[in-house]
Design a protein around this nucleic acid. Structure first.
Length: 652
RNA sequence: GCCGGCGUAGCUCAGUCGGCAGAGCAGCGCACUCGUAAUGCGCAGGUCAUCGGUUCGAUUCCGAUCGCCGGCUCCA
């Protein structure tokens, strides 16, 4: 048979040759690193004889499919170790996931997290035994027999489902452990060496809360000790940066307890960060031609019936009785902006009309999903709605994307863009008519193309009310977060019958774009805290300068210097406590104050200060004026985005 | 919402197999006047989350409630 390779070459091999044989014939190194292979388009075990002619690709941990096979194999190893230690364990599923694997099991008498070490030790024993993963294809009858003998009720459920869909069944075995599994797997347990079990959690069978709760054990696996150590270090780093911990340590916010779960109380220092962000946001929006509006927190429920939220979103809404009627605490800002739009008859000359608001909304999130600043019940959306004509779409989308990237640039976030389109085979599930989608979808893509931005297109991921662009932001340690989002809405303009008068004198349906750049201020600040590990850039730092007189003899000088700095617009305080300089420096470092000015006799006498930068240490002594200039430029607010074309005079 | 874990001083956490509640930091007072990441001494601080039960006696055991943490899409 003839096998071809990714480099374009091909060779002839005898029948029954396996990918592992071929890997060995190429190099021992490749054979050692090889995990699975792709043959004629499908993934296969290395140990399986190749079924005929075809293109072969040998996959290692460097390939996503190789990684998945390693992770998935590790999950089998985990399950077999648990079954050995806890006889009677019933298996759920155990897939590879991003960064690792898990296995869901019903484990009789499982003591929880404290058992992980013992399970890991058993996994190492089985790995050391280097048991081969053996694949066998079986019929439905045999599958039923095998899994009912073993009391594997979950597996039986899967067998029936797969049989009903007519899919072939296969099992994998290593040692005594047998699992229903599509594969592929790495050749043997000996390949699984650099792993660690991480946590235990409950998880419903098939993710459905009506089903039984199984025990889920999470782990991770790599191809080298260094890669595993690096991953564990990253996890530790993430814990260190946790915004809940830093929020407490730095006195930024508090939540939960008496204050109510999912509600954020901004402490004075956190409020400064938020205020600075809001100020920049407002100024930047004005510069981009947005009109800022303010809309109420509550509105009669009729408004929400028109918008459709009342029917589709009511589980997440808070209701309040007002007089004889029912009001709703707003879960979204759009209806408010629609009332603003409708407050006057609109002409095509008014468009695009860009409305924006830092609008605080309340949504009843399930108690179990609440998480620090990231998932809350009350939050402020940096909301904007653009009302425009069809031929303005491309320019508007471009300007919003450019605007979003301006903010990401300010904070040194990386990003990746996703374009979510409808599923063309399923148009009945979507609001608006096909002509609107046909206009908007290519316009979104074209806007991105014209800007030269790379993006991933995901069909079927659009909201029912319109296509959207999502920008994921990548933080300093490589994690992705939900970032700016730009969404078309074909639903609401129709529900509220929003129109404008065209040049032809007729009424036309207005196009509406919903966009948020931070998403929510709460979540965004949470992202910033973790991104910067609490070390805010100068302009956001709650306290920018702290002055440390060495003895009380310099107090007056210190106060005088501080008031000069404050007059220059800096947030500056003096630490006059009767503590050693070392102690006060330690505190200022822990508070992550970017600049510390030490004033002793020498400085006081010569009009100098000794400058110390957070995390960098002593910068030496310099004249006060020089220190002030240096700090002012380090704490300067970012420039506004270009917006020359939006002089206020041009806004009608 | 559900499963599991947790809830002790402002914060971080010990402890009590049922018998007067502990430390460090923070706070307050006193002394110290100090040169780049913790000066010393003292004082104060608690309905042991809340409510109910068992008990001679509950912070400890049991139950409920509230809150926090981990997880509940990633298809054998």
């Amino acid at each position: 048979m003839v096998v071809s390779f990714p480099d374009g070459s091909s060779r002839e091999y005898p029948e029954g040759t396996t990918a592992l044989d071929i890997a060995r014939s190429i190099s021992q190194g490749l054979a050692r690193k090889a995990l699975v292979c792709r043959f004629a388009g499908g993934l296969m075990d290395l140990a399986a004889p190749l079924p005929g002619d075809g293109a072969l690709e040998i996959l290692t941990f460097d390939d996503p499919e190789g990684r998945d096979a390693m992770r998935h194999s590790a999950s089998h190893l985990l399950a077999s170790a648990v079954q050995k230690l806890y006889p009677g364990t019933r298996l759920g599923i155990g897939p590879a996931i991003e960064d690792g694997f898990y296995y869901d099991m019903d484990i009789p008498g499982f003591p929880g997290g404290e058992a992980l070490e013992a399970v890991e030790a058993e996994m190492r024993r089985q790995a050391a035994a280097d048991l081969p993963f053996v694949r066998r294809e079986i019929g439905v009858e045999e599958a039923r027999r095998i899994f009912s003998e073993r009391g594997e009720t979950c597996k039986l459920e899967l067998v029936e489902e797969l049989a009903a869909r007519g899919e072939p069944l296969s099992v994998y075995q290593h040692g005594d452990f047998l699992d229903l599994c599509r594969g592929p797997h790495v050749p043997s347990t000996g390949r699984i060496r650099h792993f660690r079990l991480l946590s235990v959690a409950g998880a419903y069978w098939r993710g459905d809360e009506k089903n039984a709760m199984l025990t889920r054990i999470y782990g991770t696996v790599f191809d080298s000790p260094a890669a595993l150590a690096e991953h564990l270090r990253l996890l530790e780093e993430a814990r260190r940066r946790d915004h809940r911990r830093l929020g407490q340590e730095l006195g930024l916010f508090t939540t939960g307890g008496d204050g109510g779960p999912g509600l954020i109380y901004w402490l004075p220092d956190g409020a400064i960060v938020r205020e600075e962000l809001e100020r920049l946001w407002k100024d930047a929006h004005r510069s981009q031609g947005y009109r800022l509006v303010v809309t109420p927190h509550i509105a009669p429920s009729g408004l929400w019936k028109t918008s459709g939220h009342y029917d589709y979103y009511r589980d997440n809404m808070y209701f309040l009785p007002v007089d004889d009627g029912e009001y709703v605490l707003k879960p979204m800002n759009c209806p408010g902006h629609i009332i603003v739009f409708r407050s006057a008859k609109r002409s095509y000359r008014d468009l695009p009309l860009r409305l924006a608001e830092l609008g605080t909304v309340y949504r009843h999130e399930k108690s179990g999903v609440l998480h620090g600043l990231m998932r809350v019940r009350g939050f402020t959306v940096d909301d904007g709605h653009i009302f425009c004509t069809p031929d303005q779409i491309i320019d508007e989308v471009k300007s919003v994307v450019r605007f979003a990237l301006y903010f990401l640039g300010i904070f040194d976030f990386g990003y990746s863009i996703e374009l979510s389109l409808c599923d063309p085979g399923n148009m009945c599930h979507y609001a608006g008519d096909a002509s609107q989608w046909c206009l908007a979808e290519p316009a979104l893509a074209r806007a991105l193309d014209e800007m030269g931005e790379e993006y991933r297109t995901v069909k079927g991921e659009a909201a029912f009310y319109g296509p959207k662009i999502d920008i994921k932001l990548r933080d300093a340690i490589g994690r992705f977060w939900q970032g700016p989002t730009i969404q078309f809405d074909f639903n609401i303009p129709a529900r509220f019958d929003l129109t404008y008068t065209g040049p032809d004198g007729g009424e036309h349906r207005v196009f509406m774009v919903h966009r948020a750049l931070f998403g929510s201020l709460e979540r965004f600040i949470g992202n910033l805290v973790e991104h910067y590990a609490g070390n805010f850039p100068g302009w956001l730092a709650p306290l920018q300068v702290i002055i440390l007189p060495i003895t009380s003899a310099q107090h007056e000088k210190a106060l005088e210097t501080a008031s000069g700095f404050r007059a220059a617009g800096l947030r500056c305080s003096v630490d006059r406590r009767s503590e050693t300089v070392a102690f006060r420096i330690r505190e200022a470092e822990n508070r992550k104050v970017p600049f510390m000015l030490v004033i002793g006799d020498r400085e006081a006498a010569s009009g100098a200060v000794s400058l110390r930068r957070h995390g960098e240490g002593d910068q030496g002594s310099m004249p006060v004026g020089q220190a002030l200039d240096l700090i002012l430029s380090a704490c300067r607010r970012p420039d506004l985005p270009d917006g020359g074309e939006f002089q206020s005079a041009e806004i009608r």
